[in-house]
Design a binder for these strands. Structure first.
Lengths: 206, 206
DNA sequence: GGTAGAATGTGAACAGTGTTTACAGAGTTA
DNA sequence: TAACTCTGTAAACACTGTTCACATTCTACC
């Protein structure tokens, strides 16, 4: 069993236990027992527990990045924005523990850890560019880029956080979780067709 | 020293240590040492550590509720919505550790703990009602109540979360944190005056 | 083949955690 | 004085992450 396979074995065991018992109830000893090794053995493969969790994070981020890889092929920026948000929401609902790990808890290591400034940073640049295009193509109304980025970022992350922790479903029981982001995005951006209706409505009134 | 004063002493020491060292780096032993008591003493006043933290949460929620107490006096629902969001954002920026404790981490006890279904639940009902009024007075465009509530909730919580964890300031360095919610809310709702401008702009084009 | 050296796994220990328990003393009541 | 409650504590238990000296095995080279 070479080094890399052993790392894999540990990570898989850890992942399984984390998913089963939650991130706070899994100790090094439990992971070690799961694969029938002594706790000390794990320290030949990971500097410490934080390092092990960081590896899981990087894998999760990698997988999440792959879910988004097709975004670049979507020409229409608004469609791209829609799809990007939908992916976030789906991920938060399907793997709430991992959404928590990647985007909610232990945030410092998200930005400061030198190991992976690459992926998330590039994603954010892409997101920013998509919003920029949406503004230029008139999909989101007249607004500064900064404000639009902040709004859409906060909305997606807010929805995903509330969904991952079950609050959205609990406090708004009747909500259509499958189309929530579509509806929210429509509400925020008021796409062209709606504006047209609004304009017509206003003219009818007067 | 009667019972209630001793509780106060413990809670104050805990609060101070939590603020100084972060919630994960404060042990019962450290709190006990701070007030020169044995660790076991604290268990005469709190069932366990979770119970102690829950008490701090309830106090934080109480204080947060007081910050919002004047909202009921604001007649204009849109103005009320603005002010409510502003309070959230201010709290998240001023006391990030506590925003984290109250609204981000350990969420289960937020909804499930029978001890305080009252306050937050009532706040949510009030929020819902405010959004309802905003729709009826035409401040937020034509949208279902559920979608509007979800959007505004997610946006405020998203902004506050990103602000409390420092991401908003780090990733959008040029942003005006003091007016961010105002700007975002304007963007989302596109108030009447903006719609008018938009309408005029469209007419000029054609 | 033999031997040095690296790689791998482990038991034992250390310091820390939350929590319980048996006990001691002080205060109050009858 | 006697009984009883209240309050505080030392010691212990079962955990936690982590380290270290010690074996064992595997690899490479003369």
């Amino acid at each position: 069993m070479e080094h890399e396979r052993m790392r894999r074995l540990i990570l898989d065991a850890a992942k399984e236990l984390f998913a089963k018992d939650g991130f706070d109830n899994v100790s090094i000893r439990k992971i070690a027992a799961r694969i029938k090794y002594s706790p000390a053995a794990l320290y030949r493969y990971f500097k410490n527990k934080e390092d092990l969790i960081l590896s899981l994070k990087m894998e999760g981020m990698q997988k999440f990045g792959e879910m988004q890889s097709h975004l670049g092929q979507i020409k229409d920026p608004f469609q791209r924005l829609r799809e990007g948000g939908r992916i976030y929401l789906d991920y938060a609902r399907k793997e709430p523990e991992y959404y928590d790990l990647l985007f909610i808890k232990a945030v410092p290591s998200f930005c400061s850890s030198e190991k992976w400034v690459g992926k998330p940073h590039q994603n954010f640049i892409n997101f920013r560019e998509t919003v920029h295009e949406c503004i230029e193509t008139g999909h989101v109304g007249d607004v500064s880029l900064e404000t639009a980025v902040a709004t859409l970022w906060a909305t997606v992350h807010g929805l995903a956080s509330l969904a991952a922790t079950g609050r959205l479903q609990t406090c708004l029981p009747g909500i259509d979780m499958d189309n929530i982001f579509e509806n929210v995005l429509d509400f925020i951006t008021i796409p062209q067709i709606e504006r047209e209706k609004m304009r017509k409505g206003k003219q009818d009134e007067s």
